Amino acid sequence: MDLVQVAQRVEDLERAAAFYADLLGAAPTATYDPPGLAFFDLGGVRLLLDRVAPSALIYLRVDDIDATVARLRRAGVEIETEPHVIFSHADDTLGPAGTDEWQAFVRDPEGNTVGLVQHRPGA
């Protein structure tokens, strides 16, 4: 079984699509308005922005969490939680062994929380 799609609630489709296009560095793969849907490809998993979906907490892997948070802050994005270590991976169960998992949380323009994740070599 594979994950196919994650839906995220939005009220202003254009505003939300612009935010996610900037965050992900890619334009939507498809937009249908009406009824108010935009799709992004996240490595084979679709992120669906949908006016009638419930809010979801999504986590996105980033290459440089500090640079990403700084860029979003400059763009006026609300930073909920600064980058910090969540835990260290002793084995490969939840991430690469020998790495620390860093996370930060931001708010999209629709009020949804988005987690950012980076794995860094352990201290």
Rank of each mutant, 00 (worst) to 15 (best):
V6N: 01
V6D: 00
V6P: 00
A7K: 08
A7N: 07
A7G: 08
A7W: 13
Q8M: 12
Q8W: 02
Q8G: 00
R9N: 08
R9Q: 12
V10H: 04
E11D: 09
D12V: 04
D12A: 09
D12K: 07
D12E: 09
D12G: 07
L13P: 07
L13W: 00
L13R: 00
L13C: 10
E14K: 11
E14W: 00
E14S: 15
R15P: 12
R15M: 06
R15E: 09
A16C: 05
A16P: 00
A16V: 01
A16Y: 00
A16Q: 02
A17I: 01
A17N: 01
A17V: 03
A17L: 03
A18Q: 05
A18F: 00
A18D: 07
A18T: 08
A18W: 00
F19Y: 10
F19N: 04
Y20R: 05
Y20K: 05
A21M: 10
A21F: 03
D22R: 15
D22I: 03
D22F: 03
D22S: 11
D22V: 07
L23G: 09
L24G: 10
L24T: 10
G25D: 03
G25W: 03
G25H: 05
A26K: 10
A26M: 12
A27L: 10
A27T: 08
A27I: 05
A27E: 11
P28G: 09
P28W: 02
T29D: 07
T29Q: 10
A30T: 11
A30N: 12
A30M: 12
T31R: 14
Y32S: 12
Y32M: 11
D33E: 15
D33G: 14
P34K: 00
P34Q: 01
P34W: 06
P34F: 06
P35I: 05
P35F: 07
P35H: 06
P35E: 04
G36S: 04
L37W: 14
L37H: 13
L37K: 08
L37M: 14
A38I: 06
A38N: 08
A38T: 09
A38M: 08
F39I: 01
F39K: 04
F40Y: 11
F40N: 02
D41G: 10
L42P: 00
L42Q: 08
L42Y: 15
L42H: 13
L42F: 15
G43K: 13
G43H: 14
G43Q: 11
G44P: 03
G44S: 13
V45R: 09
V45I: 12
R46A: 08
R46N: 11
R46T: 10
R46D: 13
L47T: 05
L47M: 08
L48S: 06
L48V: 14
L48I: 09
L49T: 04
L49W: 05
L49K: 03
L49S: 02
L49P: 00
L49F: 05
D50Q: 12
D50I: 08
R51I: 15
R51D: 06
R51L: 15
R51E: 11
R51M: 13
V52D: 15
V52A: 13
V52Q: 15
V52N: 15
V52F: 14
